[in-house]
Design a protein around this nucleic acid. Sequence first.
DNA 1: CTCACAGCTGCAAGCGCTTCCAAAGTACAC
DNA 2: GTGTACTTTGGAAGCGCTTGCAGCTGTGAG
Lengths: 343, 343
Amino acid sequence: MPGIKDVAERAGLSIATVSRALSGKGNVSARSRERAQSAAAELGFVLSYHASSLASGRNHNVGVVVPSVHRWFFSSVVEGVSATLLDAGYDLTLYNVSEGQERRHSVLNDFLLRKRVDAVIAVSLELSEAEIQQLLAIHRPIVGIGGPLPGASTIRIDDSGIARSAARHLIQLGHSKIAHMTGDAAYEQDFRLPGTRQAGFKKAMNDAGLAIRPEWQVSADFTIQGAYASARQLLGGSVERPTAVFAASDEMAIGTILAARDFGLRVPDDLSVIGIDGHELGGVFGLTTIDQDARGQGALAVRRLLAGLDGAGDTGAADTEFPTRFVIRSSTAVPPVDTAPLH
Amino acid sequence: MPGIKDVAERAGLSIATVSRALSGKGNVSARSRERAQSAAAELGFVLSYHASSLASGRNHNVGVVVPSVHRWFFSSVVEGVSATLLDAGYDLTLYNVSEGQERRHSVLNDFLLRKRVDAVIAVSLELSEAEIQQLLAIHRPIVGIGGPLPGASTIRIDDSGIARSAARHLIQLGHSKIAHMTGDAAYEQDFRLPGTRQAGFKKAMNDAGLAIRPEWQVSADFTIQGAYASARQLLGGSVERPTAVFAASDEMAIGTILAARDFGLRVPDDLSVIGIDGHELGGVFGLTTIDQDARGQGALAVRRLLAGLDGAGDTGAADTEFPTRFVIRSSTAVPPVDTAPLH
DNA sequence: CTCACAGCTGCAAGCGCTTCCAAAGTACAC
DNA sequence: GTGTACTTTGGAAGCGCTTGCAGCTGTGAG
């Protein structure tokens, strides 16, 4: 393997100049730069990543911690992060901590602290204040997406607010028998999302003076198949059927629509369904939803991080609310005329 | 930041002994090891990744190149790879090369060659023989999944064979009007998959003496929504309708089922549908499919790689065929009785 | 009691770059 | 011609570890 020394010799320059020429930092005459570059090319030389990192202290590497890479939101975020990072010439080290706590802990300690990443993006992951301080102490900027990170920068959508408007959309259409499908308790643990959206739902219902019926509060695991099973219970049970379902995610909304179809219910004529996400499949099901641009959130997280790395000092713990977009399609409509007499 | 020197001082040992104690290599007395470890713990010290890598030449880092992390197959593979790698104490550097050729090229050169990964897993990515040789030359084992990698280890399923058995399944049920939904030409480029599966389909048809009608050869982009659109053309068009559809992926099979439902076609009574993958959603749609354990493929790739790194020498370019499993559910059945008289 | 041998330990030489510093070169105005 | 300021260059000291080598210690055999 050729080293920078070989390049220097071949180019008739010093090691120092070659280093500056190839890394693009410092002043180098055009002539020297070109010589260095062509010598490097001829030798098939590339700067050693580890040597550069060790000497300079910069890694050009960002650690991304996600609970899973298989679910819509996370893979969308990772796509956004990945593309932006690649453009900036940064590597992305993926920590998929699906298997729960002990793994998460070992990741934070053995990996992140080993000075091998310049910054950390934590997606839907609740870090303790101590963990965050630990990272910040060794000057590793950290930005969180969709999770509360005390003391760190975060990017998140207004979960409570959009849940409210989703519910309000149904209410304004005239629905009063509205069910809510939230996330299973397990998902409450790390990222508070299910509870927050549920709170928004309740607020909207209360504001409208509508009753929240416990039997219409169901939950699932955020997947289509999980929601499908749950919605079959809800819609096929012996209890009275709601005329609308607000699902805390698009995947769950889709599962609900599939279940409804199984029972011969037409959407939206017999049942209105609304979700949250902006899932690619929404179009196929005519799903009304609130689009949170997950890729965009990932991209923004990277931009924020890089700004903190290159730019001046800490931008502080900016808590950015990411904008969402209400997408009205054909899964919501006015409720069916009540077959039971009113009085 | 404390360095190994500080730990050595605190423990009353030499730097060398601390290094050996903490990295677990070489002979160290139990007493020294314990001292070193507690001193390190007290100082919150962790070995610097880059310094270790530079000095030792090993990175404990594997590069994973995927075309996307958002599609089922790839994210499944990444999950499998990630879990196995984490268990082995390796990092995973993700190269999501979605945006096409130029990015792919830069990744290979700027990233992979910078000696920063010990090995490479390429998923559904066709590397040229030169690229592979380049990697192997600097002793970077490489294993490919689902893509032909001349000269390197690969893991793949018998695409042609399983496509044949999928088609044969339909034929044996009595179908003769069988459509095939393959991947768009764009997907043929890197990984030959669509063509290979299509070839298997054709073989089965020919073997059975059945005609392959061009208007029943459609394609889509491997997504549910793409297949949905494509299947609407197929099923809603004015041409005669097939009684069965073999889709080259589960997502496309599901898109097809959704389109069929839109037209009031019952699956499997009016239309049989079969896919390939083992997608989690298969259960919801009762989809008959051939399960290729994508996570398992990812895990196997890692095991093979690590064996090559730790173990003796090159295991050579082993081309492993990964086993698949035929899963019969309820989306396939005997064809409907032909309404047109046979006379 | 001596010797061979094995287990531990420390010294010091790197690993392959980056970057501080000082020296040398260049340009321009006075 | 001289001074000033700036650009370009090379020498060399690290960055923070790993590891070959050699010395040192303790054990058991001869």
